[in-house]
């Protein structure tokens, strides 16, 4: 009930996915090779969407827009961009 009353007030609340499931915008998907990754966290700091997990270096594909900044900035080349099917 509480969430219903929230929805009818003219106030926006911080929620993930405010622009929808932005993962559907993606044409290329970043894939992390855990064998090469040295967990330097450079991809995490430059990710504009905050979809990369800092410790595990996993990517939340529901919201990742596939911009490819992580793949270009990765110093070891562990992230590659693969075509979406």
């Amino acid at each position: 009930m509480k969430s219903l009353t929230k929805a009818y007030r003219p106030i926006s609340w911080p929620t993930k996915g405010a622009g929808g499931d932005t993962g559907s915008w993606r044409t290329h998907r970043p894939v992390v090779d855990t064998q090469i990754c040295n967990k330097c966290q450079i991809c995490w700091v430059y990710c504009p969407e905050a979809v990369i997990d800092r410790q595990e270096i996993t990517i939340d594909y529901r919201y990742c827009k596939g911009c490819g900044v992580c793949a270009v900035e990765c110093p070891t080349g562990a992230i590659s961009m693969e075509m979406e099917e």
Binding site: P14, K16, G17, A18, G19, E49, K65
Partner: peptide, 12 residues
């Protein structure tokens, strides 16, 4: 900044 906002991909 929460995931899934409406900015372009790669938005500075």
């Amino acid at each position: 900044v929460l995931s899934g906002n409406g900015a372009c991909g790669g938005c500075p």
